[in-house]
Design a protein around this nucleic acid. Structure first.
Length: 213
DNA sequence: GACCAGGCACATC
DNA sequence: GATGTGCATGGT
């Protein structure tokens, strides 16, 4: 029996409308944002990206050459700035050295192999890798995050101990393989997660309340 | 002043 | 393989 995820999507889209994710002006900006947003509020990531732009650093070559401490200062508002500076350097080094900072070379790879390459970069975990695949490159790879896990468990569609890959597969098997759909769905899950599906949840007014078990 | 945010690597058991 | 911990800013 297929999960009612298409219905969840319809409900969320009807309630919130299109989310226009990812808010980035270029694939590279999305890649950078994917690292900066780890465990951080997006409003803080925006400040860090503004800094990078102000110093003309939002460029693969520039970041590749830049020393880590300076990069850390620039991205400070995003939090965890020293680890993120190292992670950004790692990701950019992979992008520049291995792929000539060429987005088209990434798109030319088999998506599963590209995902494996990304996961080999220290500082890139499954969510960051999938965010890059989906939001930077338009490759249909469903993004799972804490909100996804929370919504699914609260609705009895997954167990508390369900891991990242299982949740990802649940979505990908229940939905047509469509990057635009994955894009919008994940953004909508974040929207409903932020507003309602929190530790102190208020399910009475949630747009998904009719689907609660 | 807590609590939380669009995670991940690493240590330890 | 599971579980715990460090990383850090800024808004509510």
């Amino acid at each position: 029996m297929p999960l009612p995820l298409r219905d969840y999507f319809k409900d969320l889209l009807a309630h919130y409308g299109p989310q226009h994710w990812w808010p980035g002006e270029s694939p590279f900006e999305v890649m950078v944002g994917a690292v900066l947003t780890q465990g951080a509020a997006w409003s803080n990531v925006e400040k860090a990206i503004r800094n990078l732009k102000a110093y003309d650093l939002l460029d693969p070559g520039r970041i590749h050459e830049l020393d880590e401490d300076t990069l850390a200062l620039a991205i400070k508002p995003a939090g965890y700035f020293r680890v993120k500076a190292r992670r950004l350097k790692n990701l950019v080094a992979w992008f520049v050295v291995r792929h000539g900072a060429d987005v088209e070379k990434l798109r030319a790879l088999r998506p599963d192999l590209l995902r494996e390459e990304l996961l080999e970069v220290k500082g890139v975990g499954p969510e960051t890798a999938d965010s890059i695949l989906l939001y930077a490159l338009g490759i249909p790879s469903f993004v799972v995050d804490t909100y996804t896990h929370r919504v699914m468990t609260r609705h009895g569609l997954a167990g508390e101990d369900t891991g990242y890959d299982d949740l990802k597969e649940t979505f990908e098997r229940a939905l047509p393989r469509d990057a635009a759909l994955y894009n919008e769905f994940h953004a909508l899950i974040v929207a409903v997660g932020k507003e309602f599906c929190r530790p102190t949840a208020r399910c009475e007014t949630c747009p998904l309340r009719a689907r609660l078990p």
